[in-house]
Amino acid sequence: MDLAKQQAFVEHVRARGGATQQVAVTLEQFFDGNDCEWCIAPNRDEDLALESVRDVLFALRERPEVHDVRVELDQLEFQTYPDDEWPYASGVAVITTLSPEEVDVLTIDAETDPSGGPSPSPDWLVDGPTVPQGHHYVGVWWD
């Protein structure tokens, strides 16, 4: 864990309202300096490393049908984060023209559950991604 990056990340999320609301962050913001295996994708096979989840999400964002991918953080759990903890994310917002079922095919290697949506916009998120015309929100998540 890069503790300087962890602290900077937590301060950013807190400043954006993350103590009481769900804040969305970019993939770079979430994964840079983060080696906390249990910060996302709970209950996955223990052989599936955080790095693999990261790679699946970055590859998803590169798809031409995908406008953006942002991590949906839960409300901040701690006032001061322990050295081995990173703010927990319960899901990922995918802005795309694909159906939830088509997204599921692309995220199967991250052991995701069936995606939610489609919805017009993730308006419950602070700093949520914009939704261009013709696109919608699909919620990737793990049980």
Binding site: D2, K5, A8, H12, T26, L27, E28, Q29, D32, G33
Partner: peptide
């Protein structure tokens, strides 16, 4: 000054 390693990263002191 604070530095970020990634274009979309969050800078650390």
């Amino acid at each position: 000054l604070a530095l970020a390693d990634e274009a979309d990263g969050i800078p650390a002191p």
